[in-house]
Amino acid sequence: MAEEINKEELKQKIIEYLQKKPWQVRDLAKILRVKKKELDKIVQELINEGKAAYWSSGSTTYITTPEKLKEMEEKRSGV
């Protein structure tokens, strides 16, 4: 399945999901029907390209977009 999807298309799809809410890669992998290990690599590429970002609860970690991260941090840092 993974081979059939064009990588760029997949990246675009991932970003669309990330724009909705912060995700765990394992949940995205199930929805996109991609092996988690492969998705880990693609998500890491997106992070390196500045298109995705980590958000951490301290104990667990999520993936989101840099814009969403900024929005979340602004919301929660406010009074």
Binding site: Y54, W55, L69, S77
Partner: peptide, 23 residues
Amino acid sequence: KHGGIVAVYGYGGGVIGRYCDLE
């Protein structure tokens, strides 16, 4: 309050975000 920022290049951990509610 908890913040989720981990703003160090290339890393996804090692920083614990913290904000004060008495800004």
